[in-house]
Design a protein around this nucleic acid. Sequence first.
DNA 1: CTGTTAGCGCTTTCAA
DNA 2: TTGAAAGCGCTAACAG
Lengths: 337, 337
Amino acid sequence: MRITIKDIAKMCNVSTATVSRTVNSKKDGVSEKTRKHILDTVRKTGYSPNTIARSMVTRRTNTIALIVPDICNPFFAELARGVGDACSELGYHLFLCNTDGSPEQEHGQVMLLHDRLVDGMILTTQNIVEDNSDIFKFIKEGYPFVLIERYMTGVNIPLQINIDNCGGIKDAVSYLAGKGHRKIAFIRGPREAANARLRFDGYRKGLARHKLDYDPSLVVWGDYKMQSGYSCTTELLAKAGGEFTAIIGSNDLMTAGACSAILDQKLRIPQDISVVGFDNIPLTGMIYPRITTVGVSINGLGRTAAELLSKWISGSRDIRHILMPCELTERDSVSSI
Amino acid sequence: MRITIKDIAKMCNVSTATVSRTVNSKKDGVSEKTRKHILDTVRKTGYSPNTIARSMVTRRTNTIALIVPDICNPFFAELARGVGDACSELGYHLFLCNTDGSPEQEHGQVMLLHDRLVDGMILTTQNIVEDNSDIFKFIKEGYPFVLIERYMTGVNIPLQINIDNCGGIKDAVSYLAGKGHRKIAFIRGPREAANARLRFDGYRKGLARHKLDYDPSLVVWGDYKMQSGYSCTTELLAKAGGEFTAIIGSNDLMTAGACSAILDQKLRIPQDISVVGFDNIPLTGMIYPRITTVGVSINGLGRTAAELLSKWISGSRDIRHILMPCELTERDSVSSI
DNA sequence: CTGTTAGCGCTTTCAA
DNA sequence: TTGAAAGCGCTAACAG
């Protein structure tokens, strides 16, 4: 049987209150003598408090949840690492939930987590989300939520972190234009993803800024997965091969797929085609060819989210909408023309 | 304020016991009439039971933990997905913990999770683990643990799942030998990893089986990370270039790094050098070149672990030591000689 | 079929 | 500085 606070109290001939006080090192003290004694038997017996029981009265579980579409996606894995590391430092434990991108699953997870008295949640999606009354209800009640890359209209969510999708892709276009590229193809993200739209806007704006024509036949629709980057690029090469000198992928996963397709066709990167990705997942720095990409520190994004959440949980009521600026990382996938 | 069981009881003019019974759909019933009434007001009010309070009395949290070195490693991400999916189906929530490979961190996590009354844990490591008295104590007390790819001597752990490292690599050697390769280089895993040793044994056994000489100068030490696959291969190429026609990497991450190094040297895969990996992480099927690799279903491994754990938690006392056999997946990184 | 009662292990007033 | 007592929200005998 697990040893409880009562056991310690009995062994030390004190009340459970006193044990509780010393274990929690409460300000208004316990006499040095009894404190020592208690701490000693705690050590000897290996006692440590039942967190569930404690949560019962404190109404805090020191637990937060991270909800992602798919932890196998390196972007979310990296994000989870950032969140997880920050959690360790802040004294939280982390629940991880996958939704597969399904709003129903997400909703179910949130409800379950709420029942579990999770102190707060971090939500990420690629999807535009309709009014979800339950989640909104929680947010309105002041339940701590951080939303990452989630775009909703008409509701005021206190804590949001977004990536500067538009600016980032715009920079990618500028970078390529600076290298002399005039015909730049673009692999879009899926229709359901709000940030895919923003990235596309960045592409258009980048072209406009450099007075480059927008050619719809140079744009293909992917779904943010690696496989679709491959097939999109194969398609692009088939229908417009030779008509463009560079490709921008809406995310790194698709961009890696694109590289794979290009190389399979015996074309060279960057000599024949230059490639730029988006997100800056670690993978881009490690495969062949090393991909030039633009993005934020994903790990930092996770940390920021966890820290923001933690502050809110601790009572801060700062409303913060953070837009994280992107940086371009030069590697081996782009050449001058 | 959160609505509680008392509120429902009051609203329905029944005792909390009755509410509890109907909410938990206990066999020995409640009259259809009151049941309906209660369920109705539950729905209307949106009541759902406080899981913490419930855990307090049932001594169960319906929560398990997965402890991995690094969720950013695609192997562990895939594993986490398998575990997570199985958990959803089995009604568990999942705590995720990273240890960075540090035994101290792992130990800390385990203690914390134990305090949190987690119903069981799944532990993975690459490291050989010395006697850890606390964890062993828990295991001996019957606390549910599943160990994946963790090799300990002299202790009887009920639930273990291992990969057939030796047999898998041996198959890889056989496969290459069958294609006419006589000189096969090998990138070892780190000294601390028990399975690295086993994989190396498989390499030796494979060579022996095909009467190929073992040449120590064709073996380099990596650390299972992608970067080390790159540098090991660069080193190998520098000191023994031309003396081997194939490389086996102890894991896929290093193997991907190896490919990158080979291609950077303007050598071709598989025309100049054939490559085989180990683990079968999804990445190998998606990058250029698609890597031939041997391994188990990682997702399945995760599911199996979760299911085993769940059975143990539910009272099964079957001792199970599972050895998962590997399969070789042919892709584009090997040619005949 | 239903209510009463007694905790689960802990923290937290309120007194002493 | 310490203890007694109440109670967090729920479940589980035990009666009725």
